[in-house]
Simulated assay, not measured.
Amino acid sequence: MALVGPHPAVADVRRAVREAVADLDPGDLVLAACSGGADSLALAAALGFVAPRAGLRSGLVTVDHQLQEGSEERAERVAGMAAGLGLGLAEVCTVTVGTAGGPEAAAREARYAALAETADRIGARAVLLGHTRDDQAETVLLGLARGSGPRSLSGMAAVSGRYRRPFLELPRRTTEDACRALALSPWDDPHNEDPRYTRVRVRRRILPVLVDELGPGIPEALARTARLAREDADALDQWADSAYQDCALSDIDGRLSLAVTALEGLPDAVRRRVLRRAAIAAGAPSGALSATHVLAVDRLVTHWRGQKAVDLPGGLSAVRRYGTLILAISPIA
């Protein structure tokens, strides 16, 4: 009699998780961030299968954002599924979502802060996130709409510090099929249908139009674009790191100085990365430093006409003096 293996979707999610944790040491603790949706539920189930076979300890962490009625009970139900999924422990993190940056950004910031605190507290080596290829495609479209360059188009990284995203090469339908095959009942978050959220509009309106008009391979093509853009952005960042060391003259008493002649010899993309890095090092908040700010500083290098200092976020100023670009928070005499 022929042996029957797991459903193909189940095999796919297990394989993805197995590859994502392959470099960890026996005894390491790995957490699955689980909201109860199909993506994260399939992730938690796959980790529950893979971890003991790899000699790893495993757990589930779920975040209660307190944004919906009954969220506390729902979070407890998700945590209560851990043992049945083969996971050794479960944590519920209750957060208060602020307003900075809009509801989506504020919820994301609160969620990642909770995941980081939990991982630190219980000594987790890695936290797995359930983002799929479809999520990556949506992220690329959102980055394209912001017009913020290749780093934004590069989407989410498969590995970013403690966070790992095993499903970035898998379509969302695979996680849904895996849940059905495992007789798991995902929770459908009503926020995922709320058109007030930008990502929901991209998911429900914009991406389907692209698929209808250009073909079903659009999500995969966008995810591939993210991977290629990330490789290019990483290479440019490495070049800029080296160039920054060559251009920096001093960093004394809050005054950071760069040699204009060294900056002038760099390609635009590298030079602007150097300037952005310098501005952040001098005290400009990274989240408030826009491409417009960087371009204004860049003109002090490439289109010098004796112009006055450029004001930057955080009370920072940039000015050119005698072949030197100076960035400082205090007034530049």
Rank of each mutant, 00 (worst) to 15 (best):
L153G: 07
S160W: 15
A181F: 06
A158K: 08
L207N: 13
R276N: 07
P26I: 04
A157P: 01
A44Y: 05
C179P: 00
V209E: 10
W239F: 09
P190G: 10
P26G: 04
R230N: 08
Y163I: 12
A284T: 15
A100I: 00
L325D: 14
E109I: 04
L170P: 01
G283V: 12
P6L: 05
A124H: 03
C179F: 04
I206L: 15
A75R: 00
H191K: 10
L312S: 10
G55I: 14
A42Q: 09
G80T: 08
V211S: 09
G323V: 14
L24K: 00
T174E: 06
L47T: 05
G287E: 13
G98S: 02
E91P: 00
T175Q: 05
R305V: 13
D212L: 03
C93S: 13
M156P: 02
H191M: 12
Y112P: 02
L275F: 08
V30P: 08
R165I: 07
D268C: 08
P186G: 03
V297D: 00
P166H: 11
M156Q: 09
G123Y: 09
A233H: 14
L56H: 09
T292F: 12
G315C: 05
Q66N: 06
C247W: 06
A22L: 14
G283L: 12
L316A: 13
A46I: 09
D25W: 11
D234I: 04
I329Q: 15
V13A: 01
A9W: 13
G306K: 10
I122P: 02
G27W: 01
L228W: 07
D189Q: 03
A106S: 06
A183Q: 09
A75E: 14
V92C: 01
R164A: 10
S58C: 03
Y112C: 08
